[in-house]
Write a protein that binds this DNA or RNA. Structure first.
Lengths: 208, 208
DNA sequence: TATGTAAAGTTTACAGTGTCAAGTTTGGGG
DNA sequence: CCCCAAACTTGACACTGTAAACTTTACATA
């Protein structure tokens, strides 16, 4: 009856995917507070207890939505990386642009992604290459890693800077967003901090 | 009956403060999900509808708790600033240490602070001086602001970097926290990015 | 083909939740 | 002394997550 892919076709087709889709819609229509098991079920056209057969309660649904959001996040960054110039610096800057764009366009989903426990870790490298969102960042950072330095240091610097800016921007810390301009005027100046990336780290003067 | 400061002493003493206190306790015992109007009321020893006379619903209580948390946050940073060495760089590094410490020690409260809309803004300067949390940051950043540069740029760089690191650390992105060490091993290396602070900003190569 | 079985979905029920509308107590000012 | 408004209680309602029992369906197997 309903068009199903081919995954599981007992009754609904694939209710699991439908529930995740419904959840994401609800999320960016009404924010995090309005994400509800019963509402997702209603939008998917099933009874309120149906999701229990696919997710471990509301927490399970949120985790599944976060995983799907993480996928979209990765695709956004892959796409963003290719729009900038082809210099290593251009790669990183375009990546950060994509990061901020995704956060602004999907604020509730963005928050959820970082509220459901870690998706994947630096410790676990992308399976073949660039499979994970962190893998995308890692590849962009690679040219800036000095010999003998742990890549994670550079990656964490970039990641922290763009994530902090995006999160604070979303929280309204930098003032009301103009809405007109596609980006906050502080974006480029803040990213300029990455100029000094990859140099030696003087832990000596910072240790005390 | 109960010991009251002297604010309002109709029945309870000062229920408002008691509810905020109860809320913070509940928050770091059971996390954000367990913060409930009825639970706060019960812990404060009043009926479930009593909070309605002091806060505008659950959102109002959360906002009040966030405001109180913001105060503690500011005090933590003021205190942290004075523990480091007296160099400008020491000021900033100690401040960032305090930032991360607060986030780790009060994760739910930290999240709440940045989930209830902006507390104060860069636009509104600290009343006389250093009154707000941003004022503390501003003072620490002041020595690094080159002549003719907008102070907000430097402040936003520092703020974004330490906030992003703290938030990602809390989210578990950097892997499970050891728990043993007082800080994550990446903290100092990441903060080393601030070495290059205050220099000219080459918007030219970053514009494209 | 007939049948049994397990998954998928429904229905019912229950404890908590926020919120509103009343009622009740209390304290202080006319 | 009395009255009134603020502080608090009580009761109710809609909504939520969750668990249990029940019904339907699709598929494997005999």
């Amino acid at each position: 009856m309903t068009e199903a892919k081919d995954k599981k076709s007992h009754h609904h087709g694939d209710l699991r995917a439908a529930l995740i889709r419904a959840g994401i819609e609800i999320l960016d229509e009404g924010g995090a507070e309005s994400l509800t098991l019963r509402r997702c079920a209603a939008r998917a056209g099933v009874s309120h207890a149906a999701p229990a057969h696919h997710f471990d309660g509301l927490a399970g649904l949120r985790a599944a939505i976060a995983a799907e959001g993480f996928d979209r996040f990765r695709n956004k960054m892959i796409q963003a990386r290719e729009t900038g110039d082809q210099s290593p610096k251009g790669h990183i800057l375009s990546l950060c642009r994509g990061y901020l764009d995704f956060a602004v366009e999907n604020p509730a989903l963005f928050d959820l992604i970082f509220s459901c426990g870690p998706m994947d870790r630096f410790e676990e490298p992308p399976s073949p290459g660039d499979a994970t969102a962190y893998g995308v960042l890692r590849a962009a950072c690679a040219p800036f890693v000095p010999e003998g330095t742990e890549p994670r240091v550079i990656e964490t610097q970039v990641w922290s800077l763009i994530h902090g800016f995006s999160h604070l921007f979303l929280a309204g810390t930098f003032g009301p967003s103009d809405g007109s301009a596609d980006h906050h005027p502080l974006f480029l100046p803040v990213m300029a901090l990455l100029r000094g990336i990859g140099r030696d780290i003087d832990t000596a003067s910072a240790a005390k």
